[in-house]
């Protein structure tokens, strides 16, 4: 992937493979759709957790909020299925961003472990709150509308929809990380006090980063609610113990703080997990737990993080004596 041509070829083949996947393996459409969900999970968690050094255990909140907001729009707007779904998705993303903006101003003042614990509380509180609120179905949940198309069309449709979201998330983050936004949140990760002493608008950037994360999670939540067809407050929407933990795990497995790490982590994790469910039924949770322990103990830096530590030159971190700037001094 050294030259632009190689890179373009690589991306093009990934996109082609993704587009052809439902035709190549029609039996696995839903599993493959969830692969894209996992990739968005890991990528969006990594904005704060990896790039900014704020380990959030409550990002699942935005997923659930997006899911509910979309379902409410679909239930109450009176629009046809597809317009209601699209309006609902946008609403879900916007409401999630709103939550991030409001909560961020308070929560992002916390640092380190305090932020982690605080956000953990947020996720749990949201689940409890949703299961007690009648307007959104309380504990008995919400049904999303039936998909109008022919049999099998539903899976194909949601596969491509989820692929579209993942295919939007990756380049947007790539672009953000390449510019001042990326450098700034990296600086906050490495030394927030120094960043403040250099005049950086830390609060503004931190909130913007959380809002970006919330946007993609809200969008994904809106789609996943419809893929599953039924929204349970604790088991589908605010699933802190499964999705909420997995998104962290996948980012760490692949290498947090890198662009490709979360993608690699999500693919490895999702495939492994599907294999466990198929071949170790009954023991799948034990195997998953074991996998988590192995990741944390042997790959604390993740797959890409480990590679970067081992071959720093391959990632461009080397002494370069060759070129001199045109003008020295100031």
């Amino acid at each position: 992937m050294s030259t632009p041509i190689m890179r373009t070829l690589f991306y093009a083949s990934v996109v082609l493979l993704a587009l052809a996947a439902p035709l190549l393996a029609p039996a696995f459409k839903t599993q493959m759709a969830f692969l894209w969900v996992m990739i968005v999970f890991a990528l969006s968690w990594d904005i704060l957790g990896g790039q900014m050094g704020y380990n959030s255990f409550g990002n699942i909140l935005f997923f659930g909020v997006g899911m509910y907001a979309c379902a409410i729009v679909q239930r109450d707007s009176g629009l046809d299925y597809f317009p209601a779904l699209y309006v609902g998705m946008v609403t879900g993303a916007m409401v999630a961003v709103g939550f991030a903006a409001v909560l961020g101003s308070g929560m992002l003042g916390l640092r380190g472990h305090y932020f982690a614990i605080g956000t953990l509380g947020l996720g749990i509180a949201a689940g409890e709150f949703a299961s007690g609120w009648d307007y959104i179905g309380a504990g008995s949940g919400l049904l999303t509308p039936l998909f109008p198309g022919e049999i099998g069309g539903r899976e194909t449709f949601f596969y491509y929809l989820m692929f579209a979201i993942a295919a939007m998330t990756f380049p947007v983050l790539r672009w953000l990380y390449a510019g001042r936004f990326g450098l700034t949140i990296n600086a906050i990760r490495d030394d927030e006090d120094k960043a403040e002493a250099m005049g950086i608008h830390t609060t503004l950037y931190k909130t913007a980063a959380w809002c970006t994360s919330a946007f993609f999670l809200g969008l994904t939540g809106a789609v996943v609610g419809n893929m599953i067809g039924f929204i349970d407050p604790r088991d589908v929407a605010f699933t802190g113990a499964t999705y909420g933990v997995w998104m962290i795990l996948m980012a760490i497995l692949g290498g947090k703080g890198t662009l490709w790490g979360p993608v690699i982590g999500a693919v490895v994790f999702h495939v492994t997990q599907q294999l466990f469910w198929t071949y170790l039924l009954g023991w799948q949770r034990v195997a998953l737990g074991l996998l988590i322990v192995i990741i944390v103990v042997f790959f604390p830096l993740g797959i890409l993080g480990w590679a970067r530590e081992r071959w720093p030159e391959r990632f461009g971190h080397k002494v370069q004596q060759d070129l001199k700037p045109v003008q020295g001094g100031k």
């Binding site: 936004f181 450098l183 990296n186 030394d191 120094k194």
Partner: peptide
């Protein structure tokens, strides 16, 4: 205090005057 996990060049690139007129440059 420096930003340890960023390259020296990145350390420099982020140390520019932070006025809001440059907010447009964020992206």
């Amino acid at each position: 205090r420096i930003y340890g996990k960023m390259s020296c060049l990145q350390n420099m690139q982020i140390s520019v005057p932070q006025t809001l007129q440059r907010w447009g440059l964020v992206m």
